[in-house]
């Protein structure tokens, strides 16, 4: 058993599953958006679409999926390339610093998304 305190779900399985589920949600969301845009939509129609509760909930789900997906993916990339093994202590400092930046950025995205969806 290898311990990893900074991974999202701690267990490899839950991260793996979440990565797949969030990918499916994002795919479904972008297919929907693509279809809406392709079938021609104006400002009024777009406003009406995002006024519905289901679209807001689906969008929020997509934003949360994006955050989870990005967190797990970036965590994997960082723990591959920026490690103590490859770069010494510098690797740890760089990786944890970047992880903090990424989590802050994702947090801002989520709050910002909620504000766009439900704010005025």
């Amino acid at each position: 058993m290898v311990t990893a305190v900074t991974s999202l779900g701690r267990s490899g399985l839950s991260d793996w599953l979440l990565q797949r589920v969030s990918a499916v949600v994002l795919l479904a969301y972008f297919i929907l958006i693509g279809w809406v845009v392709a079938s021609g939509i104006d400002y009024v129609g777009w406003q009406a679409l995002f006024a519905t509760a289901w679209m807001r909930v689906f969008t929020l789900l997509a934003v949360l999926s994006l955050a989870a997906h990005a967190w797990i993916g970036m965590w994997s990339v960082l723990t591959d390339y920026l490690t103590e093994r490859l770069m010494g202590t510098k690797g740890n400092v760089l990786r944890i610093g970047l992880q903090l930046c990424i989590s802050l950025l994702l947090f801002i995205y989520v709050i910002w998304g909620v504000q766009i969806l439900w704010g005025n």
């Binding site: 058993m1 267990s11 490899g12």
Partner: peptide, 12 residues
Amino acid sequence: LAKLDDPFSVFR
């Protein structure tokens, strides 16, 4: 199985 369920052992 319990020993393998972490983010590295298998899931890398």
